[in-house]
C-alpha cells in the first residue's frame, strides 16, 4: 500500500518534470519537421529551449499603462497549464493526482489560462491586444462545447469523466474500433488546433498583426514574461498531444502500480507517440492554408456537430449492447 502510494507520487513528479522538459522540444520538433517538409533545413529542435533561456536573461519592458495584471497573468496562466498538464497521463497511469484528473476540470484550468491571456491582452490598452482577446474568447465559445460533448462520449464508454479511467478503459481494448470514437477524435483534433492557435485557425509564425490571435495578446510581453508565455503555449501543445495520446493511442502506457521497467517502456512509446503526432501536425499545417477569421466558427461548429454525431452513434451502440 505504502509502496504503491510512493510509486504514484514518484510517477507524478517524474511526469511533471517530463512535461515541462519536453514541451519546448515538441514545439521545436514540429517547427523542424515543418521546415523539412517545406524543403528548408529548419532550426534545431532544441532552439525553443535556447530562446527561452535567452529571454530569461533579458530585462522585461512593461507598457506604461500596464497594471499588475501584466505581471501576474503569465505566472497564473503557466501555473494553471502546469496543473492541467500534471493531470494528463504520459508514460504511466495511476499517478498521484489521478483521482483529480477530471476532463471537465482540465478544460476549466485551460479556460483559466485563456482568460489570464485575454486579460493580459487588454491590459496595455492597445488595439491589437483587445482584438486578439475578443477573437480568442469567441473561438473558445465554439471549442468548449465540442470538448464537453466529446467528454460525454468518453463518459459513456468509461462510466465517468475521469481521464485516468477513460485511458484505462480504452487501453483494455474491449471496446473495439468505433465510429463514434473516430468522430470524437476528429472533433478533438479540431479543438486542439484552435486551442493551440495552429493553422488553419491562427498562424503561429505570423508577423502581421491584423491576422494575429494568440500573438496579438502578447505584443507587449517581453523578457521573462514573454518566456513564461512561450513556455505556456508550448506546454499547452504538449498537454493536448498527451491528451490525444492518452485517449486514442493508450497502448503501452504503464498501468497503475507498475515498476520502473514498465515506466521506461511507457516512456519510450510515449516519445514515439509524441513524434507521430508532431509529424501529423507538421504535415497537416504544411498541406493547408489559414482560414479567414470569420470562417473559424464554421470550422469549430463543424467540430461540435461531429462531436454530437459521435454522441448520437454511441447512444445507438450502447442502446443495443
Amino acid at each position: 500500500m505504502m509502496l504503491v502510494a510512493f510509486g504514484s507520487l514518484i510517477t507524478q513528479l517524474l511526469h511533471v518534470a517530463l512535461m515541462l522538459a519536453a514541451a519546448p522540444v515538441i514545439v521545436g520538433a514540429v517547427r523542424w519537421l515543418k521546415a523539412r517538409l517545406m524543403g528548408r533545413r529548419g532550426p534545431h529542435p532544441l532552439q525553443p529551449w535556447r530562446d527561452l533561456l535567452k529571454l530569461l536573461r533579458k530585462r522585461p519592458v512593461l507598457a506604461e499603462t500596464a497594471s499588475v495584471v501584466s505581471r501576474v497573468a503569465p505566472y497564473l496562466a503557466l501555473g494553471a497549464t502546469t496543473l492541467a498538464a500534471a493531470l494528463v497521463p504520459s508514460f504511466a497511469q495511476g499517478m498521484w493526482l489521478a483521482p483529480l484528473a477530471d476532463l471537465v476540470l482540465i478544460g476549466g484550468l485551460l479556460a483559466l489560462a485563456r482568460v489570464a491571456l485575454a486579460l493580459n491582452g487588454h491590459d496595455a490598452g492597445t488595439p491589437f491586444g483587445g482584438m486578439g482577446a475578443a477573437r480568442e474568447m469567441t473561438f473558445a465559445v465554439f471549442a468548449e462545447p465540442a470538448l464537453l460533448v466529446c467528454v460525454m462520449v468518453f463518459a459513456v464508454l468509461a462510466g465517468g469523466s475521469n481521464l485516468d479511467a477513460i485511458g484505462a478503459a480504452l487501453r483494455d481494448g474491449a471496446l473495439g474500433l468505433r465510429v463514434s470514437l473516430l468522430f470524437a477524435g476528429l472533433a478533438l483534433v479540431a479543438v486542439m488546433l484552435a486551442e493551440n492557435a495552429r493553422i488553419p485557425v491562427d498562424n503561429p509564425a505570423t508577423h502581421l498583426e491584423l491576422t494575429m490571435v494568440h500573438e496579438a495578446m502578447l505584443l507587449e510581453a517581453s523578457g521573462r514574461h514573454l518566456a513564461v508565455w512561450e513556455m505556456q503555449a508550448a506546454l499547452k501543445l504538449t498537454l493536448w498531444f498527451a491528451l490525444l495520446a492518452a485517449i486514442f493511442l493508450p497502448f503501452g502506457t504503464a498501468p497503475a502500480g507498475s515498476g520502473p521497467l514498465a515506466w521506461a517502456a511507457g516512456l519510450g512509446l510515449w516519445g514515439l507517440k509524441m513524434g507521430l503526432l508532431a509529424l501529423g501536425l507538421a504535415f497537416f499545417e504544411s498541406a493547408i492554408a489559414k482560414m479567414r477569421v470569420f470562417r473559424v466558427p464554421d470550422f469549430l461548429g463543424g467540430a461540435l456537430l461531429l462531436a454530437l454525431l459521435a454522441a448520437a452513434l454511441i447512444f445507438v451502440s450502447t442502446g443495443l449492447a
Binding site: 468505433r178 465510429v179 463514434s180 473516430l182 468522430f183 476528429l186
Partner: peptide, 8 residues
C-alpha cells in the same frame, strides 16, 4: 468504421 467514414 467503414460505414462511419462514408457518413463523414
Amino acid at each position: 468504421v467503414l460505414g462511419g467514414a462514408m457518413l463523414l
